[in-house]
Amino acid sequence: MSDFIQDLRDLNTLVVHQRDRSGDDLLQQVNRIGCNCENAWPIPVSLQKKFDLVFIDVTDQPVDRIKSFLNSAGGEPPTVIALIGYENPSTLESIFEIGAHAMLTKPVRATGVLGSMLMARRYWAEQLRFRKDLAKMRDRVVNLQKINDAKFILMRHHGIDDQEAYGVIRKQAMSKRTTTLEIAQSIINADGILRNIGNS
């Protein structure tokens, strides 16, 4: 059984919706599912950091206001489920713009709320993971490039080959108790300084 189902009852949820029939039905269903649940309306200026999942009525609401609200907590934005009154292209477009992870159509029925919460959580978690992985990959590519540059510098100056150059960097890193990346960076810096001295 996936963690999303297991952890469901630990979620702090916020329902940003008028206290009308749809709003009440949704609040009650979220309560039945067993999550902590609060209500807010109209759209507040800022979002408290504690909320993991936000249901938000996007019908006739300015997209910029929704976006600034959702991003106001700082850090990672919460999981967002959009509630829409009209299933027309402009409303659907606004769902994409605010970065919703799932949606529910109004009038809200009890059936479908649990499913959309789970889908939204999964999609949100996946996006988060992908973003982290991507950042890690980007760093790694940059690092690799730096180590290569440092190796070329050593090869040029000392007439050694690729493997020997890497060996020098590794040995230095070990004796100075630092990373190969630090050493590579120092080599690149030193090379730049020495070259500048030569030019002046």
Binding site: I5, Q6, L8, R9, R32, G34
Partner: peptide, 11 residues
């Protein structure tokens, strides 16, 4: 005593 129904209890 009578026990409260909890239809959405996962575990």
């Amino acid at each position: 005593r009578a026990i409260k129904p909890d239809p959405y209890l996962v575990y």
